[in-house]
Amino acid sequence: MAGKSNGTDVGHMAEWVRAPPPTGPWLHRVGKAIYNPDEKSFLGRTPKRWGIVITFYLVFYAVLALMFATCMGGLLLSLNKDRPTYTLDQSLIGSNPGVTARPLSVTGEIKIDHSDANSTNEYVDQLNEFFAPYVTDPLYGHGECVPADNFGYPDTPCLLLKLNRIIDWEPHYYNDAASLPEDFPTELVDHIKNLTTPAERSRVWAWCWDENQRVELEYPWGRALPAFQTYKAGATHRNPIVAVRLKQVSNSTVIRCRLLAKNIIYNKSLKEPSGYARVIINVVSGTPSNGETIE
């Protein structure tokens, strides 16, 4: 009985044991590796074995696809199409909106060459595109810092400031003239105190300064963003903007701009900046339109 059992096992094993590699010329061995007429195998497998392998992988990947589709379907069903699941402090973005200045520059600085009439064309084109949705809005543009005057470039360039959009964020205004922060500039404090109603003082204020104290700045549209609308998911209203103009730029300088509200956190660190935009303006040699020579 033992001998008969061993013979059967050996027979079954023989079906699965690979034969020694074929001998003979190199091309003959390669041909047999591709198709072996003795075993009727292709690439080392018989049709039966190929059928088992193909069936296994078809079932395996079908199950994976079904699991993936189930997970994605469950995820999509859990999402709200009209708003993100997490907002403000619960989101990765947080509740402190960034301050952005236009125009933007790939090199990190705005280069003005008074000897080259086309040196600022890219900035004017960028501002024209950015300002296009605001052209018909009476809140924006009062003859200055608009397409008609090339946004002041190159002699008195303008910067357009805005807050980055955060869903459900609402500003907490500095609208109590008696308790404004001590670091507010005197001219802004005086401006706020001269306003007569809380509605006029309930604004997001703009404050820019030249870090090198060379250039005088002015706000041709006023010192604040227009009436603020809370950002809602799916809302179509535009980000409010405010303009600041540099009067007669004749030297390279660095402009820092803040938009002021109690819940816009200002961190002046260059590694983790927040609450401000910093713009480097590099003026190269040339002669402004007024004839003043730049050294």
Results as ranks from 00 to 15, higher is better:
Ala206Gly: 10
Val146Arg: 00
Ser179Pro: 00
Gln213Lys: 11
Leu188Cys: 08
Cys208Glu: 03
Pro226Gly: 10
Cys145Met: 07
Glu170Leu: 15
Pro220Phe: 08
Phe228Met: 09
Tyr231Glu: 14
Cys145Gly: 03
Cys208Phe: 02
Tyr219Ile: 01
His142Ile: 08
Cys145Val: 05
Arg203Met: 11
Ala227Val: 12
Leu188Ala: 09
Asn164Met: 12
Asn175Lys: 14
Ile167Ala: 12
Lys162Gln: 14
Glu182Thr: 09
Cys158Leu: 06
Gln229Gly: 04
Asp210Leu: 03
His142Asn: 13
Trp209Leu: 14
Pro147Ser: 14
Pro198Phe: 10
Tyr153Val: 07
Arg214Phe: 02
Asn212Phe: 04
Lys162Asn: 12
Asp149Gln: 01
Leu217Gly: 00
Thr230Leu: 10
Thr186Ile: 11
Asn150Tyr: 02
Pro171Tyr: 11
Thr230Trp: 06
Pro171Glu: 15
Glu187Tyr: 13
Val146Ser: 01
Pro157Asn: 15
Ala199Met: 10
Pro185Trp: 09
Arg214Glu: 10
Leu163Ser: 04
Ser202His: 05
Ala148His: 08
Thr196Met: 13
Asp190Val: 12
Phe184Gly: 03
Leu161Ala: 06
Thr186Cys: 04
Trp205Gly: 03
Trp207Leu: 09
Trp169Cys: 09
Tyr219Trp: 04
Cys208Lys: 05
Asn164His: 09
Lys193Leu: 02
Asp210Thr: 05
Glu216Ala: 14
Asn164Thr: 14
Arg201Ser: 08
